[in-house]
Write a protein that binds this DNA or RNA. Structure first.
Length: 426
RNA sequence: GCCCGGGUGGUGUAGUCCGGCCCAACAUGUGGGCCUGUCGAGCCCACGCCCCGGGUUCAAAUCCCGGCCCGGGCGCCA
């Protein structure tokens, strides 16, 4: 049985429980073992007079974090946490833990993030850390459910690619027999090809790799991207999907992860849709009250912080200058402006999307205009020559979303085993 | 890539500025002991640490040089 399945009403019932020894409090004639399992804590109480001597003496010496199995009787008890305790008949040590521990699971002494990540298996035993990933699981589940309900088809695209970069980020080169290859920075080009293939609505949840030497609390070199692509719609259409998706995720987490939110001491609110939309040009006006940025330049961190403070919460920045967006975005009639958007949370960018350029000739021009070579994109361009519908899509950073939602101070907290500038293990 | 900050028991900190009073302190931990209502249990005893290599000096955790490692900010990027 799990800890949460037992209540004071089960008084007198025989139960089997298993888990980790969180703490042992030895009072001499009375020993308490705090047992921790996946769902919470249980108190095993051993009064010296009642327990068999051998069991009693062995139990008080069990090292913290050892894995034990307990068979015993539930006893309703006002003085016990949650109103009950278990009086054991037998205690079996399934696996003994070494001491001292690499870090304190009881959180009496804090540990640096670096120490925690080096010992992640034990760090994750801490309820607060565990809660993050229980919520992450629900987030992914909600996203999947929502997109399936909306008629999307889940796809898997390659993570090993040969193409030159689509622009922007650096790629990790890898050794691939006699060929040059890279880890994919995003499923962008492949999900667009799926539009030509006639899937109409696709999504993918998978890893992306960025070989940037950044060293900040909001960047990872391996992250999880949630990507959608949708035919016969425009940027407005996919923005609506995105805000509904975000609201759904918040609502589900609120409904199904109350316990974990409580552990994290978070008060989550479901964001109201539609999210505020502000054009790049209007955003620039706000920023210019305190800082000069010429039209057409990207908004740097300082600018985004000004905006985040001004607007707050979740909002879209739309109509970005074409020159700072990738070749695949579609422009308005005024070609300086693109049908693109970023979803922001404060100053953190969560997602970015656009209507795509589906017209072959225009696309080739765009590639050339970015100083790239159309020949390197032949596998991609081919899909545009034989019937490509108009389409739009976006990519959403899962860890960024989690960071924003749970107010995490460091994106590494949102990844089980983060990969950053210096860390590739564990 | 640029710029800051840091490395002291298993863990987290103090001490470094201004060298000696530091064979290094505190908490947690670990080992042992006492204790029948703990829930950050309490009390007593013990154990355990100055990143590496040079240098300066009568004397280095402390100052200087080099190295390794880590954190953060900016840039870039999602």
């Amino acid at each position: 049985m799990r800890s949460t399945e037992i209540t004071p009403e089960k008084d007198g019932e025989q139960v089997k429980v298993a888990g980790w020894v969180h703490e042992v409090r030895d009072l001499g004639g009375l020993v308490f073992i705090v047992l921790r399992d996946r769902e919470g804590f249980l108190q095993i109480t051993l009064p010296k007079k009642v327990i068999e001597r051998e069991t009693f003496n062995r139990a008080r010496k069990i090292s913290r974090e050892s894995v034990i199995k307990v068979e015993g009787v539930v006893k309703k008890e006002e003085k016990a946490p949650n109103g009950f305790e278990i009086i054991p008949k037998t205690i079996e040590v399934l696996n003994e833990s070494l001491a001292p521990l690499p870090l304190e699971v009881t959180e009496k002494v804090p540990a640096d993030l670096d120490t925690r990540l080096d010992n992640r298996f034990i760090d994750l035993r801490r309820p607060k850390i565990n809660a993050i990933f229980r919520i992450k699981s629900q987030v992914v589940r909600s996203i999947r459910e929502f997109l399936y309900e909306e008629g999307f088809i889940e796809v898997q695209t390659p993570k090993i690619v040969s193409t030159a970069t689509e622009g922007g980020t650096e790629l990790f080169p890898i050794s691939y027999f006699e060929k040059e290859a890279f880890l994919n920075q995003s499923p962008q080009l492949y999900k667009q090809i799926m539009m030509s293939a006639g899937f109409e609505k696709v999504f993918e949840i998978g890893p992306i790799f960025r070989a940037e030497e950044h060293n900040t609390t909001r960047h990872l070199n391996e992250a999880t991207s949630i990507d959608i692509e949708m035919s016969f719609t425009d940027h407005e259409g996919v923005m609506k999907i995105l805000e509904r998706l975000i609201a759904r995720v918040y609502a589900d987490v609120l409904e199904k992860c109350g316990k974990f939110l409580q552990i994290l001491e978070l008060n989550l609110e479901v964001p109201k849709i539609p999210f505020p939309r502000i054009s790049y040009s209007s955003a620039l006006e706000i920023v210019r009250r305190s800082r000069e940025i010429p039209w057409g330049e990207d908004l740097d961190l300082q600018a985004l912080k000004i905006l985040g403070a001004e607007i707050g919460g979740l909002y879209f920045i739309t109509d970005w200058p074409t020159k700072i967006k990738p070749f695949y975005v579609m422009t308005f009639e005024d070609e300086r402006i693109s049908k693109s958007f970023d979803l922001m949370h404060g100053y953190i960018e969560l997602a970015s999307g656009a209507q795509r350029e589906h017209r072959y000739e225009r696309l080739v021009e765009n590639i050339k205009a970015k100083g790239l070579h159309p020949e390197s994109f032949e596998f991609y361009l081919k899909a545009f020559r034989y019937g490509m519908p108009p389409h739009a899509g976006w990519g959403l950073g899962l860890e960024r979303l989690l960071m924003a939602m749970l107010n995490l101070g460091n994106i590494r907290e949102a990844m089980l085993f983060p990969r950053d500038r210096t860390r590739i293990s564990p």
